[in-house]
């Protein structure tokens, strides 16, 4: 179990992590979702004792990370799969960790097999690894000490769809056996696929948290027409409030039947009409991303 309590980290005057509290329970995969620079990695580094917190606490089953004896055998941590000595072979990297933890070298082979790195791949130097191979090696390293708790920063980054599917299976089984998993991502889709519980962070603050079912379940309807403004007018004249959602669609609190009737009454042809499942989370996430967006998309020719 991981308990983060009123955690704050400031760099100069900048609050990278701002009064963050959450809990990860055993038997579940907790997804830590947030746009770039939201404070995910910083929070995870604080949990693993690499970054000192400005205030607040982060405990692992009630224990401060530095007070855990031989922590690799109790918590598996992957913070950055690229943070490796480029000149070492994959196998050697695992061997160093196994030696540090006091594990037999047979464990290294087991882990290589688990993450599907072949013997010849494991003898290559890490600078010649693809991004996905590095992620697999990093996951193998985190699992080496057979820990009950896993902390993984962007583990799906660089994995192909088959790789993501594989990781979902791996973490699912791990959680089903009673393990605790905290994993981060800046992609809603990845988190949706893998996590049971979701914590959304933006600008250092928690903006939403709950089970996946709770967060994805949004009342209302998603509707899309060939002519969006005609649809918006139709809904307004039927007394339904709506807001833009996704690509060119609208979301309203009314149920699909009511929305369908209103569109039919105004003679607007619909392209899509469905319960707005997950749209709430997506909108919130898009909005979060838009706030911290680095470049504004200017339509070509605009302002010319």
């Amino acid at each position: 179990m991981i308990t983060v309590d009123r955690l704050t980290k400031t760099y100069g005057g900048y609050r990278a992590v701002d009064d963050v509290s959450f809990e990860c329970r055993p038997g579940a995969v907790t997804g830590f979702l947030g746009p770039n620079g939201a404070g995910k990695s910083t929070t995870m580094r604080i949990i693993a004792g690499l970054t000192p917190a400005t205030s607040g606490s982060a405990l692992v089953s009630g224990v401060n990370y530095p007070d855990i004896p031989n922590p690799g055998t109790q918590i598996g941590v992957l913070l950055d799969a690229s943070a490796q000595h480029a000149g070492r072979t994959g196998r050697e990297i695992l061997a160093l960790s196994a030696l540090t933890m006091g594990l037999p070298m047979s464990r290294v082979d087991e882990m290589l097999q688990l993450v599907s790195l072949t013997p010849s791949e494991s003898k290559r130097r890490v600078k010649n690894y693809s991004l996905g191979m590095r992620q697999r090696l990093g996951i193998a390293n985190a699992l080496l000490g057979d820990p009950k708790i896993l902390i993984l920063d962007e583990p799906a980054n660089g994995l192909d769809p088959a790789g993501i599917h594989w990781m979902r299976g791996l973490l699912r089984e791990y959680a089903n056996r009673g393990g605790t998993v905290l994993l981060s991502s800046h992609l809603l889709h990845e988190i949706e696929v893998i996590a049971d519980e979701i914590i959304v962070i933006g600008n250092g603050k928690i903006v939403a948290e709950g089970t996946k079912a709770e967060l994805l379940q949004t009342a209302g309807t998603f509707v899309k027409a060939g002519d969006p403004s005609a649809l918006a007018n139709a809904l307004t004249s039927a007394g339904l409030t709506s807001a833009p959602s996704g690509d060119g669609g609208l979301r309203t609190e009314a149920d699909p039947a009511t929305v369908g009737k209103a569109a039919a009454a105004a003679g607007v042809a619909l392209v899509e009409l469905r319960p707005a499942e997950g749209a709430g989370l997506e909108e919130m996430f898009l909005q979060l991303t838009a706030e911290t967006q680095r470049e504004t998309i200017t339509p070509e020719g605009a302002g010319a």
Partner: peptide, 17 residues
């Protein structure tokens, strides 16, 4: 989802010599 057994950290385990 059922609640899994709590995970405890073994603070009596030998450290890394």
């Amino acid at each position: 989802m059922s609640t899994a057994a709590p995970i405890t950290i073994d603070t009596a385990r030998p450290g890394v010599p």
